[in-house]
Structures are given as C-alpha cells and as structure tokens.
C-alpha cells in the first residue's frame, strides 16, 4: 500500500524556504536586467542603426527558437571553454536574463511600434534629444500598453527557472529533488514544490500588475 507522507517533506521546510528565496532572487534579477535588455533590444530594432538592429534580431530569434534548458547548458558547460566560469546560480541568472531579454525585446517592440508618430515629433520639437524622446516619451506608454504581456512573460521565466536545479543552482526545484533523493518521497516533494511555484506565480503576477502602473510608467498611461 502506497500512502502519502507530506510530513516527511514539510519537516524539511528550512530547505524549501531557502529554495523559494533563491527563486525569488533569480526572478527579481532576471526581471530587472532582462527588462532593461528588452528595452535596449526594442530600441535597437526600431530606432537603432542597421547593424545593431540585425544583431538584436539575431539574438532575439536564436533565443526564442531554442529551449531554455539548452541555453542554460551552453552557458554553464560551454562558456568555460571560452574562459568564462560562472557559479550555477550566476549562470542561471545570466541564462534567465538573456532569455527574458529576448522575449521582452519583442514585447516592448510591439509597444514601441504602436506609438503615434505625433508624440515623437512633439518630443523632438521640445528640443529633447532622440535618446531622451525614446526614454521619456516612447517607452513609458509603450510599457503601459504591453505590461500584461510582459508580466506573463516574467511569470513564464520564473516557472522556467525550475530547470536551473539541473545545473545544481540551489533554487526551489533543486531542494525538492534533494529532499526526494533523501527520503524517497518523490511525489510528495514535487507536489509541495509545485504548490510553492503556483503560489509564487499568482503572487508575482498580482505584484507586478500592481507595481507596474504605480511605479514603472505612471498612472497617466493606464488603460
């Protein structure tokens, strides 16, 4: 008779809490840096010089068309042969930033391309430099337009971070695996971790949808 024993998993709660903390750290870093990378990419593809636009397009396409786990393996196992050696946690963070940056680049670009021409011209006529116009006039409303898509993508990247345990980054799924390899309660350990991810996903979505309009691009542009 197989019976479920969640207590055997839950008594390891310090590990689970540590894992959740690491997952939050990873996603916070990825969302911040990946967001900036995405905006830079969107700029390169819409306003940037041709070679830069091609470069950005190549980056976006190669990331969007390969699995995250393969990107992670290339960074962790491949980069050392180029002399770059990152700890599993930093390799994971880098992979997540690069991954999110590509998707965010596409999302933000859609928002930027929907900016009415007149707003740009109005900005330039106020003697703002093109850089200032992009940063102050184009990006905030563009972000506001695409924010729901952006939030979804950040959540997807957060869930994708479960794979980072495969290169021994100590995040939530890593500890779920560790616990099950110690007490042989595989199903219970994975179920608890899965529930943890679900709560994280819901909380992260709520938080970002709340934070975005209030702190990132101002209330003026809502709706």
């Amino acid at each position: 008779m197989v019976s479920l024993d969640f207590a055997a998993v839950l008594e390891q709660w310090p590990l689970l809490v540590q894992g959740i903390g690491a997952t939050i750290w990873l996603v916070a870093l990825a969302a911040t840096l990946g967001g900036f990378l995405g905006i830079a990419c969107a700029w390169a593809r819409t306003w940037g010089p041709k070679p830069l636009a091609w470069l950005a397009a190549g980056y976006v396409e190669s990331i969007r068309n390969t699995p995250f786990i393969v990107q992670l393996f290339v960074i962790f196992f491949g980069l050392p042969s180029a002399g770059v050696r990152l700890s599993p946690e930093w390799a994971s963070a880098l992979a997540m930033v690069i991954n999110l940056g590509a998707y965010a680049g596409e999302i933000v670009r859609a928002g930027v391309e929907a900016t009415p021409r007149g707003q740009v011209e109005a900005g330039l006529s106020l003697a703002l430099t093109p850089g200032q116009v992009f940063r102050r006039v184009v990006v905030p409303p563009a972000l506001a337009r695409v924010w729901p898509a952006m939030v979804s993508q950040i959540v997807i990247v957060m869930l994708g971070s479960a794979v980072c345990g495969q290169i021994s980054a100590r995040e939530l799924s890593y500890f779920a695996n560790l616990i099950q390899s110690r007490n042989f309660r595989a199903f219970e350990a994975y179920l608890v971790a899965t529930a943890g991810y679900l709560v994280l996903a819901i909380a992260l979505r709520r938080l970002l949808l709340w934070v975005g309009p209030r702190f990132l691009f101002g209330t003026v542009w809502r709706g």
Binding site: F77, P80, S81, P88, G165, Q166, S168, N177, L178
Partner: peptide
C-alpha cells in the same frame, strides 16, 4: 557540495572546471 541530476552532468561540470 554541488549536486547534479545525473552522472553525465556531474562529469561535464568537472571537465568544464565548474
């Protein structure tokens, strides 16, 4: 102690100097 999912990956990490 860095733990990996299978021995392939553990060995790869050692060979890569990770």
């Amino acid at each position: 102690i860095r733990r990996f999912e299978d021995n392939n990956v553990t060995v790869a990490a050692f060979v890569a100097g990770q």
